[in-house]
Design a protein around this nucleic acid. Structure first.
Lengths: 296, 296
DNA sequence: CCCGATCGATGCGCGCCCGGCATCAATCCA
DNA sequence: TGGATTGATGCCGGGCGCGCATCGATCGGG
């Protein structure tokens, strides 16, 4: 049966065309090297080298086998190296899910930090709502997920990746646009663009909770899922909205963002979740990168 | 040091996820298989498998190593197979030189026969004059050559590949075009397109010899190297020419070819030459194919 | 023309390693 | 809680791969 040592021996002899030199390169003596070559030729049932007591030459078959042998040896070395890198969490592929809103500001920062710290790691990104991410995570189709609370599934572990403020989105020509900062009470009876209760459940519940807690009842005109759609309606002057601070990165002309005075300054949370007990070392690396990420 | 048996063992265990079944697949018992995996993990310094007494699972490193291991094993098998094929002369690359005129009829027939008999052999073709072919052959830059005589170099062996008639090329509107067959004496004092004495030495010497032997002196107007150039001048009505029968394959409109009555019916010879003692089995295959080729 | 040097092949003996058997230890199921 | 399953481990025997010594072929120099 074919063996790496045969390939190493053949490769050395074929390169040196001299058994003695090849043997010393392989840290062995000439006799066992001669035998290794004989065994290889017997295994392949092919004469690879024409040798007399004065010269060693490759046969046509040997010439064709040499690059293959070298390639296989090289592949084995790189495979070993890559595997060590993967085990150290320094190489490999991490399939990461994320919510649409996290792509506005947080995800690019995370990806940039990963590229810098782990240049040989490939992040495979997929946008999904939190519910689908949990499903895909449990099914093993993604390895980590940027999700909204709650993150209490028994088979998942999660750490908070981000807590960000909620800001008011106001049409540029609206009276409130002139104010430095707003309070929830400013929204009383104002036309309001809200989140859809199912498709954008987290922000819907968050905003509804904040308003209810403050006893404020805006005039809800529309319920939408996507933040950029909400901002488009705000720009059109249809009403005000409450959006995560990261939405400012969308740079919507005609919409101004104003800080919102809240008891809890950063109520919008994002978590990194993964399968409990997942031994992929990339998870640990990712959590470490996350912890070192400057707060945005 | 990494070893094929490690890869085979790992591959089997990773596919079966069961040491006992993997062992029986490898025709061995379970204990040495466990040890092989331990050795592999020690060599790589990486844990590839998470195993308890009830379950075997791949780690992230193992998942990345498995396809590499399988690929290396597959490569080794195909390399062995290809090498056996090369040794049998059934695969590989043969660099073949040929003269321009041999490409008119003989070379395509030879290439077709090679493709049919040796589908995994690649013929790498280069057109050169005989002198250059001998040089390239000796330098090892081509492996075989279709050359014109003489083929008496001490380091080369040659067999006759072809002996073909010489035919007369006559303008369609020339009086001689009406004749069924011609003799050399018909060329006495006729305008004649001849071969260049250096660049087309073989045909030049052949034609000069034939004419001299017959005591015929045509009126040589031009000396050219390429047969298609000669035929172009014939078509233009500038004179007659003597060309190898294969030139008929060029299907030159306005030129008719007439058999030439000669003492030696097939005086134009082509030889297959190769390095004396070249052990490339493809040479032998090629010679055999040549011998089996129907005479054209 | 012969002798010595070179170099791959071979005979031989030793030691290591690999494979198999028996058994242990952990885990799961009934 | 006991038996079955399964991977790990202790142990032993045989084979094989290594190195040493030597052979045989070939080439070059005197």
């Amino acid at each position: 049966m074919l063996d790496f040592s045969h390939l190493r021996c053949f490769s050395a002899v074929a390169e040196e065309l001299h058994f003695g030199r090849a043997a010393s390169r392989l840290n062995m003596t000439q006799p066992p090297l001669s035998r290794q070559i004989q065994v290889l030729e017997r295994v392949l049932d092919v004469q690879l080298l024409d040798r007399t007591s004065r010269s060693v030459r490759l046969t046509a078959a040997g010439r064709s086998f040499l690059p293959e042998a070298q390639r296989i040896l090289r592949l084995a070395e790189t495979a070993a190296h890559v595997t060590r890198q993967v085990a150290a969490g320094k190489a490999g592929v991490l399939k990461l899910g994320f919510t649409a809103a996290s792509a506005y500001d947080f995800l690019p920062r995370l990806v940039t930090a990963c590229r810098a710290a782990l240049p040989d790691v490939t992040l495979s990104l997929r946008e999904m709502v939190t519910k689908d991410q949990v499903e895909e995570l449990l099914a093993g189709r993604i390895d980590a997920a940027l999700v909204r609370p709650p993150t209490t599934h028994p088979d998942l572990t999660a750490v908070r990746a981000l807590a960000e403020p909620i800001v008011a989105a106001v049409p540029a020509d609206h009276p409130l646009a002139g104010r430095e900062r707003l309070a929830l009470s400013d929204f009383q009876a104002e036309p309001f663009i809200a989140y859809a209760p199912h498709e954008a459940r987290y922000f819907h519940d968050l905003v509804v909770g904040l308003l209810a807690e403050a006893g404020v009842q805006p005039n809800v005109l529309q319920q939408l899922t996507q933040i950029h759609s909400i901002l488009a309606l705000v720009r059109a002057g249809l009403g005000l909205a409450l959006v995560p601070a990261a939405a400012e990165r969308l740079r919507f002309e005609g919409v101004v963002f104003r800080p919102l005075v809240l008891a809890q300054p950063r109520p919008a949370e994002l978590f990194l979740a993964w399968r409990r007990g997942d031994d992929d070392p990339l998870i640990g690396r990712l959590v470490a990168i996350l912890a070192a990420l400057p707060e945005g």
